[in-house]
Design a protein around this nucleic acid. Structure first.
Length: 1075
RNA sequence: GGGCCUAUAGCUCAGACGGUUAGAGCACCACACUGAUAAUGUGGGGUCAGAGGUUCAAGUCCUCUUAGGCCCA
């Protein structure tokens, strides 16, 4: 039999027997071979279909794919999430579950509109209307599908198995119909209402901006000089309440004044501003900064808190809204500070988020006397038609002179210029204003308590998200504004009467309901059902509640927030409830979702809102939220900074499995951030890919050399084999637990540790047995490789596929079952003993190093003193071999020999126990234990630093002291010690020389390009001790180096020989020729 | 401006309840080992951001300062 049994390597020739498994693999090439095989074999489909869904889907593992917005190529963040989205389903599939995976696309929203506007060179919403909403939306549709092909390529290349052919898109009519159903469901439950929302607004482009657009550029925030006014509003109690504002144009819309409830305010008398004595109200802390207007030490007539002031009424500065219900009162609000201004804040509900929140709570109407072009409208007649910034000077002038509609008694106390950082439109660079925009809301505040309860049923990774970032966000949830005054999105399915005299609102939740009332469906230019604008806007009908028959039902022109789409994904992806009702009920909630941590405010949140509101269930039962991927310089990844390695280049150079490992093993899945570097990815190749591959290469090399076909038996009685099998069992058990817990980073760490044992201990120590063709070694390694490939398959799907198929000839490791540990021996004691063996080797190596005793120099004896020497007995040969000692003595720690080996007792004071009892004196005892000022009395009483210690307050341990002449002592970390005989006899020194020669000859063989099995003719020359060693150890040297002819010559360097230094500076020359 | 988080080796990070010699991986240097492995083994490095306090004892608790990050305004 020849390994590999199957290979994707086009250059491999299985009939050749050797070299079919490349020793220096090009992983990207192997990966492409495996991907091509999967494509041809349709392995993914088979992996899903071979698992029975079970009755009512009970054997299914449900995964929801969070839809990405594909307005560009995938970056590391997408790849990272994609890897997790692949690992968990692969694992669950191997565990026997059926895991359907559909890809999803988020298609609606502003990014698509911005791209379409950019491509068509248009800037404003008017431009869009002029262009035609149908043409514009066609452009949006084209822009979101532009990259779907590239996405598929990347996702396929990263070895993520997901169904693209059966994907879902949020712009499909079926998806959108389910979204309408959800909106209507919320409406019917009384969870939807219409109101205002304050947004940054560009009056030049006539569009509100999203928060995202405020962060689009660093220069969105620019310094700007604005007039800052201090104005006195006349309280009904007579004082002038001083407010400060940098937006004079909002004063005509003033509806209230806010004060900090615990801030201290004063009333002072002054005649400076008006010439007559007036009483002014402001925060005590701000008094000094008004010394110029109010006097250096004005007469304080009253001191009171904000809470005292709350409820007082005043005359508004302008008369337009005088007499509004509940308006023009002093209100307490926590956001008020005394950092600048007067400690009293003018509130205009139409132009400030805080303002609106406070006034909403007080029952004050939101007034917005500014049009979408940023110009004043009725009832602000004095400035009607003026752009708000342009109106500032006139407003200030009127305030000063009391002209226009300024209320009598209002006083302009100060006018100054104020420099501040102010947001500007990233498109047109004009300063933005904050303005109320009509919007529909989901009343999240009504259900947030239930959302919190349902959140308790979700298992979060990392755990703290549950009650931390997500839990707190839900706790402080505000109503969700779900409409946008835009074009490319699911329509708000609300039709309103266009005459307020005959009010009526209709909400539609299906095509059928629409057709029933309007007599037809919304159809696009191609005659297809289409819920997008403008087609849906065309549907109008007479208002049934209007007896005059003149008013018309027209759709609210808004579209829905894209987050409403993605939050509907759980049911809308299958067109629930119009189709697939059984499927949905069996697949909700999802078993598992994963996205980056920011989705606690995005997708996780909107899924949870809609699931709670519509189904009273959580939408998912497990959720991983991972951290953010950063560029190699620790900053956000940025195309212009080129601070991250190109994704395609990494695939081509290191491969998709290497990138997978790098990302999955990192702290990013525990919620931390991750810096992406080429170096880190290469490290994954070095630490994991190469060791695994080389174990396979090693196995194939020697199995092929022996023509051995292993069946993968676990019956070997060899101690090293038994150890590996038991260790493999422990490994798989641990890994299974970690993957069950979605602890992928832990699973990687566990695997890395196991690979170390496999390659750097088991294979290294077993080389000779493979070289000798011991069947049980091949059987053991074949069995372990099979198990390991299956266990690591989710973490390195491409590499393990190539190895597993080469090893077994099977169809795919991903069609195999998860390894059953019961086939492997459970022997924790054996594993523990081997761990101790490695400690012995490590400690003894340190002794050799300290004594400058090179490893090739054999030493006579190593004495190992441990609690249970019998446990190490099976490994004494391994210890002797590894450490190059002639004999290993295993001695019980009980035997009392310790003192003879220069090992002494050491006292350690347990400060934690002794501290509380002894107090300050504990320091004396510690000092004593360190300086040697301690003793153990015959009755066992321990005294240190003159203080008697109680049992538990100290521990007596053995430590290496001065060893006897000719020996060195080293401690073992888990107890016990080793004693190395360091006496180098002439015989040992000579054997050391012989072994140096072997090494030199092997190097010469290698340098000469000889194959491992080639026989050689060997000539050795050199100084007398070298010749002596060569003669006395001919059998060893000739045997190790496969020399059929062996000449020791004192005639100096022969032609073609290599000069080397051996032993302690002895000269040698070796000549190797092919026999 | 308010709130939250972070600061430990050249780098990335661990360090329950305070306990006296602060760990790991990588990088670097030296030596060793090497006919599977650009591998491995052994050894080498830290004023725990700064200042003050509490305590017998502080990387750990408290206060302030500095620097950086996140969220909200």
């Amino acid at each position: 039999m020849t390994y590999p049994k199957v290979t994707t390597d086009p250059t491999a020739d299985p009939s050749n027997g050797q070299g079919a498994v490349p020793g220096s693999p090009k992983f990207p090439l192997i990966e492409e071979g495996v991907l091509a095989y999967w494509a041809e074999d349709d392995t993914f489909r088979a992996s899903v279909e071979q698992r029975d869904p079970g009755k009512g889907g009970e054997n299914e593992f449900v995964f929801y794919d969070g839809p990405p917005f594909a307005n560009g190529l995938p970056h590391y963040g997408h790849l990272l999430t994609g890897y997790v989205k692949d690992i968990v389903p692969r694992y669950q599939t191997m565990r026997g579950k059926r895991v359907e995976r559909r890809f999803g696309w988020d298609t609606h929203g502003l990014p698509a509109e911005l791209e379409a506007m950019r491509l068509n060179g248009i800037k404003t919403t008017d431009d869009i209307v002029e262009m035609g909403i149908d043409k514009f939306n066609d452009a949006c549709r084209a822009s979101v599908l532009k990259y779907s092909g590239e996405w598929r390529d990347y996702v396929t290349r990263q070895a993520r198995w997901v169904d693209f052919d059966n994907d879902y898109k949020t712009m499909n009519p079926e998806f959108m119909e389910s979204v309408l159903w959800a909106f209507k469901g919320l409406f019917d439950k009384g969870l939807v209402y219409e109101g205002f929302r304050i947004l940054p607004y560009c009056w030049n482009d006539e569009t509100p901006l999203s928060n995202h657009e405020l962060r689009m550029d660093d220069d969105v925030y620019q310094d700007r000089q604005d007039p800052a006014l201090t104005v006195g509003f006349r309280l009904d109690s007579g004082e002038l309440a001083l407010i400060w504002t940098t937006t004079p144009w909002t004063l005509p819309s003033n509806m209230g004044v806010a004060v900090g409830p615990s801030i201290e305010y004063v009333v002072v008398e002054s005649d400076l501003p008006t010439g007559t004595v007036e009483r002014y109200l402001l925060a005590k802390a701000r008094l000094a900064s008004y010394a110029k207007e109010l006097g250096e030490e004005p007469n304080v007539v009253e001191t009171l808190t904000g809470a005292d002031l709350a409820g007082r009424s005043y005359t508004p500065p302008f008369t337009y809204y005088a007499g509004s219900d509940n308006a023009h009162r002093v209100l307490a609000a926590d956001f008020v500070t005394v950092e600048d201004g007067t400690g009293l804040v003018h509130l205009a509900p139409g132009f400030g988020e805080d303002d609106k929140a406070v006034l909403d709570a007080a029952g004050v109407e939101t007034v917005v006397p500014v049009g979408k072009d940023g110009r004043f409208t009725f009832p602000v007649t004095d400035y009607e038609g003026m752009q708000v910034f342009d109106a500032n000077p006139q407003i200030i002038g009127d305030l000063k002179s009391g002209t226009a509609s300024v209320s009598a008694g209002t006083v302009l106390v100060r006018r100054e210029s104020y420099n501040h950082s102010y947001p500007h439109c990233w498109r047109c660079r004009e300063p933005l204003i904050y303005m109320a925009v009509s919007s529909w809301f989901v009343e999240v505040t009504k259900i947030k308590e239930r959302m919190g309860q349902l959140n308790q049923d979700i298992r979060w990774t990392p755990e703290h998200i549950k009650d931390g970032q997500f839990g707190r966000w839900v706790e402080n949830a505000r109503d969700w504004s779900i409409t946008r005054n835009r074009f490319w999105g699911s329509p708000v399915p609300v039709w309103k009467s266009d005459d307020p005299t005959y009010p009526r609102i209709d909400v539609y939740g299906s095509f059928e309901e629409i057709e029933r009332d309007f007599g037809r469906l919304p159809l696009n230019a191609q005659g297809e059902r289409d819920l997008h604008r403008p087609w849906v806007d065309e549907l109008t009908r007479p208002n049934p509640d209007d007896p005059t028959g003149k008013s018309t039902m027209r759709r609210v022109t808004d579209v829905l927030d894209v987050w409403f789409d993605s939050g509907s994904m759980s049911f809308a992806q299958v067109h629930y409830p119009f189709e697939n009702t059984d499927w949905f009920e069996q697949h909700f909630p999802a078993d598992f979702i994963v996205e980056y941590i920011g989705q606690t405010r995005g997708w996780f949140y909107t899924l949870h809102i809609l699931a709670t509101a519509l189904f009273d269930k959580p939408a998912f039962s497990s959720c991983i939220s991972h951290g953010i991927v950063l560029g190699s310089d620790g900053n956000k990844m940025s195309k212009s900074l080129r601070n991250y390695p190109d994704v395609s280049e990494v695939f081509d150079r290191d491969g998709a499995d290497a990138m997978r490992w790098f990302l999955m093993a990192s702290p990013i899945l525990r919620g931390g951030n991750l810096v992406v570097t080429e170096q880190g990815i290469r490290e994954a190749v070095r630490q994991v890919m190469i060791p695994l591959w080389n174990t396979w290469y090693f196995f194939a090399l020697y199995a092929n050399a022996e023509h051995y076909d292993a069946q993968g038996s676990t019956d070997s009685t060899d101690p090293l084999d038994r150890y590996l099998l038991a260790k493999t069992r422990q490994y798989v058990e641990k890994l299974t637990g970690e993957l069950d817990d979605y602890a992928i980073a832990d699973a990687c760490e566990t695997t890395r540790g196991f690979f170390d044992v496999l390659t750097n201990w088991y294979v290294r120590r077993s080389r000779e047995r493979f070289w000798e063709g011991k069947p049980e070694a091949f059987e053991t390694l074949a069995a372990v490789l099979d198990v390991v490939c299956r266990a690591v398959a989710p973490l390195l799907p491409l590499t393990t596929e190539e190895i597993w198929r080469g090893l077994t000839g099977g169809r795919s490791v991903h069609l195999a079952d998860w390894p059953d540990v019961s086939a492997l021996p459970a022997d924790d004691a054996l594993v523990a003993a081997m761990d101790q063996v490695r400690e012995v080797c490590s400690a003894t190596s340190a002794l050799r190093k300290a004594g400058k005793l090179r490893n090739r120099l054999p030493l006579a004896q190593l004495t190992v003193v441990v609690a249970d020497p019998a446990a190490l007995e099976p490994f004494s040969g391994i210890i002797a071999d590894e450490l190059n000692v002639k004999s290993v003595r295993l001695v019980s720690a009980e035997s009392g020999e310790a003192a003879g080996y220069g090992v002494e007792q050491k006292l350690t004071v347990n400060a934690r126990a002794a501290g509380p009892r002894l107090g300050k004196d504990v320091q004396l005892a510690i000092k004593g234990s360190k300086s040697g000022d301690w003793s153990v009395a015959d009755d066992g009483t321990v005294t240190s630093g003159g203080l008697a210690l109680v049992e538990g307050e100290y521990s007596l341990e053995t430590a290496a002291g001065d060893a006897a002449e000719g020996a060195a002592t080293g401690m073992l970390p888990t107890g016990g010690f080793v004693v190395l005989d360091t006496v180098v006899t002439p015989e040992l020194a000579e054997e050391g020389l012989a072994r140096d020669l072997v090494r030199a000859i092997q190097q010469a063989r290698k340098d000469g390009g000889l194959d491992v099995t080639d026989r050689i003719e060997l000539t050795i020359g050199g100084t007398p001790p070298v010749l002596e060693a060569a003669r006395n150890h001919e059998a060893l040297i000739a045997g190790e180096t496969l020399a059929t002819s062996y000449t020791v010559s004192d005639s100096g360097d022969a032609d073609g020989s290599t000069a080397v230094v051996v032993g302690e500076g002895e000269q040698a020359a070796v000549r190797v020729t092919l026999a």
